[in-house]
Structure formats: structure tokens, C-alpha cells
Write a protein that binds this DNA or RNA. Structure first.
Length: 386
DNA sequence: AATTCCCGCCACAAA
DNA sequence: TTTGTGGCGGGAATT
């Protein structure tokens, strides 16, 4: 075995960004957002995009939570498009979210009264590796299944979005987001670990969201703290700044968050152990995608759609206008208005109050009343410069 | 060293 | 059982 050259590839570097969720998401959208796309077949998408199935779940889940897709059946989703976002957002705001409805034939028994509302873990046990903590009620309790499936990604995404929408500031630092979306940021040591795990999810979500141009990653003021800003449909485009990502800042070496260059193809024969041959239509993809992008652009311009996904084409001439015209529906316009507090930059102090207020508000219902699971956040947070 | 986050093991659910 | 879903965290790429 002295063969280093693999398939005559002159490419060395394995770049992580080539396989980011953000990129994948962009490609996904490009693929299904053109005109008359209807249903989305997951494994079909996986093949077309040249990724493992698992990754498709990742992006689909977050997309579904904001209304871009809906699960129709096993392995099949219905493409709603960006138009589904405002609606979902509204519901989110009302608290009537719940994206997954369907007729859960889970008639179950016993348990009547309310239904949903997970979060009933009095003492969630996060024991990994070792099993302890569950000392109290031992005996018959080998597997306390429960744990509503709705515990992550989808929910996390919605909560994250809510957070972004309810806060007065148009920026939420990663830290705060993590803190709010989890229990407080106390230092229970053992939870410290779980915290890190959640943060990873946050990154996943952020990547997808930003590739949809719903959020943008920035930096808190001038601090080094990374933060996210809600762009929504309007974002900062009030001046026509552009919602489209600037043409990949590779010149500056800055690492753009969401979109990147188009995924060229997979790498080596990865899915070997898989079933039948996945064929090799993966390659031609890049070409198609380019076409898709064009189509999307046209589509967006032509219809009254939003300008959500101006996925920058790999290297097409600058023929497309970055200057997207913002002609959203009046509906959404008003909606957005009511949503956005018009940036009342009073004082950070005040700002933070609303922060917690909002949080407590929409988390109260989820909590279910038993006020002892996750503390509403404490005021110990120091506001930047004291 | 710290942050970002891809990869895929594996548990759980549906077919 | 097999197949579809998707938590969850190791650890490598990036910063």
C-alpha cells in the first residue's frame, strides 16, 4: 500500500466548510425551491446532495420547525417554501406553535388531562457512562422512557427564534442563548458537560438559519463574543444593504457563517457499506444547482416571495443583482412591524429585563406551572461594562 | 488554548 | 426483524 494519490485528485485539504450544514441547507433549498417542487424525498435528497441521511434530518428538522417543510409521511416531506416562515413565526409568537400535529394515534392510556408538554423531568438524569443519581426510586425503573421526542433541534430552534424575536436587542450572544435555552448557566459541574452538548446543537441550528438568511452571525459590539442577529425578512435591509451574503469573503479570509461555495461533490466512496449502489449522479449536481440558483432568483423576483434565499452562486458572473428589492407581502410587513420593537435602544440594563421577562413569559407555559425545573434565569448577569 | 461543529454510533420508533 | 429517525458527544478542523 503505497498509494497516496487517490483517484488522481490534486486536491489536498479537506475543508470542513465544504460539508457544513449551512452549505447543505443552501443546496437543499436551491434544489427544492424552484417553482413547482412538491414533495421532498429524504433519501433522494441525500443522494442528490451527496450526504448521509443523517445530515438531511438535521437540516430538515430545523427547517420544519420554522415552517419551510412539513412532514407528510415516512421519508417524505412537503415543501412549503419561505412563505411558510411568517406564518410559523406568528404562531410561535402566539404560543400556538406546535409544528408537529398529525393524528398521533397514541391513545395511550391512563394519562389523560393535558397531553403534550414534555418537560416533566423533576430530576433529569444525565448520567452518561456511569449510572447514578437515580437513587430515590430505584426498583422498577430500568428505562424511564418517556422523554418526549420533542426535546431538541426542532424545539431548540423554535425557542432560539423566539428568543431572537422577543428580545429588544437585535443580538443574542451564543452564551446567553445557551443559557436561556438550557437551565440557567449555573455551574453544576456535571451539567457543564450537557451544556456543551447543547451548544453544539445551537451551532447546527445557527448554521442552517443563517444559510436561510434568517439570522446572521456577528460579534457583540466590539467584544469578542459571538452573537446572532435576527434578519428576518427585513433584516437590516432597510437601506438596501443586501440580505444576500456578500460574495464569500475569502479575500479577507473571514469565515462566512452560512453559505459558502456550492458543494462540489462528495469525497471518496463513502457510503460503501450501504445498500445498493448509490450510483454516481452526485457529480453532475453542481451544474444543476447553478441552474437552480438562477431559477430561484427569477422566482423570487417574479413572485411576491421574500428574498430569503439569494444563495450566492459559486462563481457566476455578477449578473444577478445583489440589491434585492424588498417587496414582501403587506401582510408580513405589518407582522414584522409588530414583531420588531423598532430597536428601542434604551439601556442595556432595561434591555436585559425584557430579556428575562420575555423568556419567563413564553417559558411559563412550557414549564407547565411546576416552578421548579429550570429557574427563570437569575440576575447575576453583569451587564457588560458595569 | 478555545471555539466551531462534522461524523456517525447507537437507541428508539415505525414498518 | 429491518428500516427510518434523530439524540448525543468524541474529537478534529478552525480560529
Amino acid at each position: 500500500m503505497a498509494e497516496k494519490s487517490e483517484s488522481g485528485s490534486r486536491h489536498h485539504a479537506y475543508s470542513r466548510k465544504q460539508k457544513s450544514l449551512g452549505l447543505l441547507c443552501s443546496n437543499f433549498v436551491s434544489l427544492y425551491n424552484k417553482g413547482d417542487v412538491d414533495t421532498v424525498c429524504l433519501d433522494d435528497a441525500a443522494i442528490k446532495l451527496g450526504v448521509e441521511r443523517r445530515r438531511i434530518y438535521d437540516i430538515v428538522n430545523v427547517m420544519e420547525s420554522i415552517g419551510v417543510l412539513t412532514r407528510k409521511a415516512k421519508n417524505r416531506y412537503l415543501w412549503i417554501g419561505f412563505k411558510g416562515i411568517p406564518i410559523t413565526l406568528e404562531q410561535l409568537k402566539e404560543g400556538t406553535a406546535k409544528e408537529h400535529n398529525i393524528s398521533s394515534l397514541e391513545s395511550s392510556s391512563a394519562k389523560v388531562s393535558d397531553d403534550e408538554d414534555d418537560d416533566k423531568s423533576l430530576d433529569h438524569n444525565d448520567d452518561y457512562g456511569e449510572g447514578r443519581l437515580c437513587i430515590t426510586d430505584t426498583a422498577a425503573k430500568p428505562k424511564c422512557v418517556a422523554e418526549r421526542k420533542e426535546k431538541s433541534l426542532g424545539q431548540l430552534t423554535q425557542n432560539f427564534v423566539k428568543l431572537l424575536l422577543t428580545t429588544n436587542a437585535d443580538m443574542v450572544s451564543l452564551d446567553d442563548a445557551a443559557k436561556l435555552l438550557l437551565g440557567d448557566g449555573q455551574n453544576p459541574a456535571y451539567l457543564r458537560n450537557a451544556n456543551a452538548a447543547k451548544v453544539r446543537r445551537l451551532y447546527d441550528i445557527a448554521n442552517v438559519l443563517s444559510s436561510l438568511n434568517l439570522i446572521e452571525k456577528t460579534h457583540q459590539s466590539d467584544t469578542r463574543k459571538p452573537a446572532f442577529r435576527w434578519l428576518g425578512t427585513k433584516g437590516k435591509c432597510e437601506n438596501g444593504v443586501t440580505i444576500a451574503l456578500p460574495p464569500v469573503a475569502q479575500k479577507s479570509g473571514k469565515r462566512m457563517f452560512g453559505t459558502e461555495l456550492t458543494n462540489v461533490e462528495v469525497k471518496r466512496a463513502k457510503l460503501l457499506s450501504s445498500v445498493d449502489n448509490k450510483s454516481n449522479k452526485t457529480q453532475v449536481l453542481s451544474h444543476d444547482l447553478k441552474e437552480c440558483n438562477k431559477a430561484v432568483q427569477r422566482q423570487l423576483q417574479g413572485s411576491k416571495s421574500f428574498v430569503f434565499g439569494p444563495f450566492n452562486p459559486p462563481k457566476t458572473p455578477k449578473e444577478e443583482v445583489i440589491e434585492q428589492k424588498f417587496e414582501n407581502d403587506p401582510d408580513f410587513e405589518s407582522f414584522a412591524s409588530s414583531m420588531r420593537p423598532a430597536y428601542h435602544s434604551q439601556a442595556l440594563h432595561d434591555l436585559f429585563s425584557h430579556y428575562m421577562e420575555a423568556y419567563n413569559s413564553w417559558f411559563a407555559e412550557i414549564a407547565g406551572g411546576s416552578g421548579n425545573l429550570q429557574q427563570p434565569l437569575k440576575k447575576s448577569v453583569h451587564i457588560g461594562h458595569s
